[in-house]
């Protein structure tokens, strides 16, 4: 089966005006405007297979959102080829728009002063959704996202989490095959984040939709994506399995041991870097290649009740990736 998304050598550069602070700089800019070239996306290539969920990671300003905007047809690229479901996105063919959605956590498509149901009706008409299909879809989305009572309240009176759920539903009414989700859980509490995650996973499982997801919450990525694409400063740093990220970029492992009773800190000497020792729990960080030996020593020297060896948290690994890219 051909990939749903093909990106080859995508480049998006912006020219932005620039000036220093103060009146003098302001006056100078009247005569001579300084401009700066921003390389938002600088030659990235990747493919996404049908039904795949891919986490698109990077720090602020890495080029994630710009990439999603090009992929959904909002922006024209500077260079490069993009093919989504066989369409060139920025041609914005009706058949293309009917098969994709872009949901941005900080942007909204709903009428602010009207109940969301009115915006749903607009989408129904614009996308030409059949009455029966519309009723069934709204019913399903209401059940999955717990929208009961939310569609009749003016959008401005919904909480942030409620609004995000309704936005998500509005973006899915037409049954898109490709979902571009840009920070879909931003600003939401933990419960709401989990609910949105569970919904995206179920939508993907039931419809086979392809999902490209950006998020600053690693929990989103861990819960949903088997594969991640990491970009920074518009360049692709990593494209592969989520677990492979730690293997490649994290040089150490974290070993946590629960002891039968607390021990003197002196007894831990030579067992790697002691990250913490709280009562009977000790956390040790050690180089990856030394982890088996350190584990053996821990088991031999200490009264271990329980032991776990883990990769460092994903946040730490990602930070390591970016730090490596910038030094």
């Amino acid at each position: 089966m051909p990939p749903d998304i093909r990106v080859h050598g995508l480049v998006k550069h912006y020219v932005v005006p620039e000036r220093g602070a103060g009146l003098r700089a302001s006056l100078r800019s009247v005569w001579r405007r300084r401009r700066r070239l921003v390389r938002a996306v600088d030659g990235i290539s990747f493919e996404v297979a049908p039904g795949e969920i891919v986490g698109f990671l990077g720090p602020n300003g890495a080029g994630k959102t710009t990439s999603l905007k090009v992929l959904s047809g909002l922006l024209h690229p500077t260079h490069g080829r993009v093919d989504v479901l066989g369409f060139t996105p920025w041609d914005r063919r009706a058949d293309f728009l009917a098969r994709i959605t872009l949901i941005m956590g900080q942007r909204q498509q709903l009428f602010w002063d009207l109940p969301a149901g009115d915006s749903f009706q607009v989408n129904k008409a614009v996308f030409g959704i059949d009455d029966a299909v519309f009723r069934r879809t709204v019913g399903l989305l209401t059940e999955l996202l717990e929208l009961d009572g939310l569609l009749t309240k003016p959008v401005r009176q919904l909480s942030l989490g409620e609004r995000m759920k309704v936005e998500l539903a509005a973006g899915l009414l037409h049954g898109p095959r490709v979902l571009f989700l840009d920070e879909p859980t931003i600003g939401l509490d933990v419960t709401m984040q989990q609910r949105i995650r569970a919904f995206v996973a179920r939508y993907n499982a039931e419809t086979g939709a392809t999902v490209l997801l950006t998020s600053h919450y690693m929990a989103d990525v861990k819960a949903l994506a088997q594969r991640v694409i990491v970009i920074d400063r518009g360049r692709l740093l990593y494209d592969g399995a989520l677990h492979g990220l730690a293997e490649r970029y994290a040089p150490h492992k974290t070993i946590t041991v629960h002891l039968e009773q607390p021990v003197d800190p002196a007894e831990l000497r030579g067992l790697g870097e002691i990250v913490s020792q709280e009562g009977a729990q000790v956390t040790v960080r050690t180089r990856k290649d030394e982890a088996p030996a350190v584990t053996g020593q821990l088991l031999a020297r200490l009264p271990v009740a329980d032991l776990s060896v883990e990769d460092p948290p994903l946040e730490e690994v990602i930070e390591q990736v970016f730090r490596g890219n910038r030094t």
């Binding site: 914005r92 063919r93 009706a94 009428f111 009115d118 008409a125 614009v126 030409g128």
Partner: peptide, 21 residues
């Protein structure tokens, strides 16, 4: 760039804009 022809979308948009206005 092509967009769907037909007035169902624009009319729905008009109804919503009227309600908003």
């Amino acid at each position: 760039m092509t967009f769907r022809l037909g007035l169902a979308g624009p009319l729905a948009m008009l109804r919503a804009e009227m309600a908003d206005m």
